[in-house]
């Protein structure tokens, strides 16, 4: 019903002529049926997440957010949004993942280039349907007017902010699940209370979009604000949690390695110190252990992070070049270990 009203309101506004491109204050135009249905919508615009897709201007009830320490993806700029249907809210679950109501969605757009040169490459959506989360990738067209479902993924040649020409991989639908899967369930990864700012959480709380700010919120360091003298350990552990632990944890895609890189893991052997590789193959390089305290250049973990070669490089997906800054922080952490 509300959607019908909304369309009517939009129609009236359009009739106004001069108002055609003005912001129209109407209830959300997000297409709840597309989120909750069984189908895989062919176009991103069918969801109605954006008032203006090219400018990534979100629709009402679509909330932008940022992570303290983000996943690095060849230096892509990421625009993140959460959609919560009117009358629903997020529920805190300790410092961990916020709990999302059925009908909500998480939207992440990957872009390269600055200012007017910015090009949207892909938008990934996670839809919370009655029987669980569904992950779908959408690829933007050259005109930046629409993004189309790319079930089988794809490749785009581009130049990273670091100036490297790469073949950027848009993941296929299954690869979405490779990272977003735990114990065979598809789950969001990013929006954990510990990796969100107090300011954002407070804003959501004030709007009634979050039930409370839990203890342990906002405890992960803000990667972009780090300074050379900051302690390396929290930065490195946050980086490894965000970039690696979705697979490297019990129930994750790399559970059989026994390596557990979650932020909360306190057993040094579990997060790699003195741990021998299991199925690393040539990813092990010439080295015997994931981490050798004090010796970053003898540590498999750093060797793989520092490689862009398929079969050696970690993470296996979403990376075609090396994150020099991430490598530098992890290197300093291992070097300073006693």
């Amino acid at each position: 019903m509300r959607r019908g009203l909304a369309i009517l309101a939009l129609a009236c506004a359009t009739l106004g002529g001069a108002l055609a491109h003005a912001t129209v204050l109407v209830p959300s135009l997000v297409n709840d049926a597309a989120i909750r249905g069984e189908a895989f919508p062919a176009k991103l615009s069918e969801f109605g997440f954006f008032k203006d897709g090219a400018r990534q201007l979100p629709q009402d009830f679509v909330y932008p957010y940022a992570l303290n320490t983000p996943l690095w993806s060849d230096g892509a700029e990421k625009l993140r949004f959460i959609y919560l249907p009117d009358g629903t809210q997020l529920t805190a679950d300790g410092e961990g993942l916020l709990q999302f109501p059925v009908g909500s969605a998480i939207i992440k757009t990957f872009a390269f280039g600055e200012g007017s040169e910015r090009r949207l490459i892909e938008t990934r959506v996670l839809l919370h349907r009655a029987n669980g989360w569904v992950a779908l990738p959408y690829r933007w067209n050259a005109e930046q007017t629409e993004a189309t479902l790319a079930l089988a993924g794809g490749r785009v040649d581009l130049v990273t902010p670091a100036g490297e020409a790469i073949s950027y991989a848009i993941p296929n639908k299954n690869q979405c699940k490779t990272c977003h899967s735990n114990a065979n369930r598809t789950v969001p990864i990013g929006p954990k209370a510990r990796n969100l700012s107090v300011k954002w959480l407070g804003g959501m709380l004030k709007e009634g979009k979050l039930d409370r700010i839990p203890p342990g919120a906002a405890t992960m360091p803000v990667w972009a604000a780090r300074k050379p003298k900051d302690a390396a350990e929290p930065l490195a552990r946050a980086y490894l949690d965000v970039n690696c632990a979705h697979c490297h944890q019990p129930g994750g895609g790399a559970s059989n390695s026994g390596l557990d890189l979650r932020w909360e893991q306190r057993d040094p052997h579990a997060y790699g110190i003195g741990k021998r590789p299991v199925a690393a193959g040539r990813g092990a390089g010439e080295y015997d252990f994931s981490i050798v305290a004090g010796h970053p250049d003898e540590s498999i973990l750093l060797y793989r992070l520092n490689s862009a070669e398929p079969g050696i490089a970690m993470p296996e997906l979403g990376k075609a070049s090396v994150d020099r800054e991430g490598v530098a922080v992890v290197r300093r952490w291992i070097a300073e270990m006693k």
């Binding site: 991989a169 299954n174 490779t178 899967s181 398929p310 296996e316 075609a320």
Partner: peptide, 12 residues
């Protein structure tokens, strides 16, 4: 000419 992923085919 594989450019990405950790294996040829992954079955889950």
């Amino acid at each position: 000419t594989q450019q990405g992923a950790g294996e040829g085919l992954l079955v889950t």
